[in-house]
């Protein structure tokens, strides 16, 4: 087996009594596009800062391509970061920002300029070299930050919520571009995000963080289809969690709670329409949210609890708030959750 690009062994980072990162074990393969996903304060950004060297773990050890990095300052690590606020130097031109890493290494002015121009064209910003960061749009600054991080040919590229400040359209564009760049360069990308859609669509593998720990690591499909715990089910794709008690009333031998994805549920006009072998529940429609291609129907169960249904807006059974609805699903759509 090849050496992992980044490995965490029992890594903790405590700030006083706050356990920002608590006993994390992790291996990121070379060339992987790895996402750290979690709500704010879950420890994902702290993990990124530990890799970059801005912070030191209180316990455990981190290796970058096999090399232990305890006490190694950021300027001696072969990793580069794209910061959430981009952190471009306001007093330097775009080209000088991009070439900063080369200047520090003592590369001559002409060579620096050439290389910076090359990196700028890689991120589609040719000809912007003489501008100041303040003269660029948010999306352009993001690209400059990316070019600046890539110019040192780092072994690992760290991206801290790089698309967080962009509007939806730009974000989707940049997602595609980041993936393209990743394929072109073959570098290891470690990407921190709180946006589950972003993590699922971009990453090869995703680690889901909660309360300083990793709850689950897996491919996007695994994370989405087989959430290990209630937290993962809810955080990734906002699944319905069906309690064991309710399942037993349906005649299912319950092994605890189960997750049920909103898009696996079909709304039927009457019990007769429920397909053979499917389970069904009766519920009151609380609200219908039209979202263009799909609609989201929030229903209220008689015994308490809500179930969300997501189906194609076009050609579905029409429902209105206050109406009764039959929710039908295959038993196989239920995914058993671990007690946690």
């Amino acid at each position: 087996m090849t050496e992992p690009a980044v490995s965490f062994a029992g890594v903790s980072r405590h700030f006083g009594t706050i356990r920002a990162v608590d006993g994390v074990d992790l291996e990121i393969a070379p060339g992987e596009f790895f996402a750290m996903l979690g709500p704010s304060g879950s420890g994902k950004t702290t993990c990124l800062r530990l890799i970059a060297g801005f912070d030191q773990p209180t316990d455990g050890s981190i290796r970058i391509f096999g090399e232990a990095v305890e006490g190694v300052p950021p300027y001696r690590r072969a990793v580069n970061t794209v910061f959430q606020d981009y952190a471009l130097f306001p007093h330097m031109s775009v080209a000088d920002n991009v070439a900063y890493g080369l200047m520090v290494r003592g590369v001559g002015k002409r060579a620096r300029r050439e290389k910076a121009e090359e990196m700028l064209s890689l991120v589609k910003l040719s000809g912007f070299g003489d501008r100041k960061p303040a003269q660029l749009s948010g999306g352009q600054r993001q690209r400059v930050a990316l070019a600046r991080a890539l110019i040192n040919a780092p072994k690992v590229v760290l991206l801290d919520e790089p698309l967080g400040a962009l509007d939806l359209k730009l974000r989707e564009e940049m997602q595609v571009e980041l993936r393209t760049l990743h394929r072109q360069l073959g570098l290891t990308f470690v990407f921190v995000t709180h946006d589950q859609g972003e993590a699922l669509s971009m990453a090869d593998r995703v680690a889901v963080f909660n309360d300083g720990r990793i709850v689950q690591v897996g491919t996007p499909t695994e994370i989405y289809e087989q959430p290990r715990t209630r937290f993962v089910a809810d955080f990734v794709g906002s699944s319905n969690v069906i309690e064991a008690a309710l399942l037993s009333t349906l005649g299912v031998s319950a092994r605890g709670a189960a997750s049920l994805r909103p898009e696996r549920i079909r709304i039927c006009a009457s019990v007769v329409e429920v397909p053979e072998g499917w389970l069904s529940l009766s519920a009151t429609v609380a609200d219908v949210l039209y979202q263009g291609a799909v609609r989201r129907v929030v229903t209220q169960l008689a015994g308490g609890g809500r179930i969300a249904v997501s189906d194609a807006a076009h050609g579905a059974v029409s429902v209105a708030p206050g109406a009764q609805a039959i929710l039908a699903f295959e038993p196989a759509a239920l995914h058993w959750l671990e007690q946690a």
């Binding site: 970059a52 060297g53 801005f54 300052p73 950021p74 300027y75 990793v79 580069n80 970061t81 910061f83 959430q84 606020d85 952190a87 471009l88 130097f89 306001p90 007093h91 900063y100 890493g101 200047m103 520090v104 290494r105 600046r148 991080a149 040192n152």
Partner: peptide
């Protein structure tokens, strides 16, 4: 984050002082 970015790109503290902190 500017100081972290400078260190991240390979600048030792003295270089960060000269190239980032003092100009700003």
């Amino acid at each position: 984050s500017l100081l972290e970015a400078s260190a991240d790109l390979g600048a030792a503290p003295g270089r960060t002082l000269r190239s980032v902190i003092l100009p700003l």
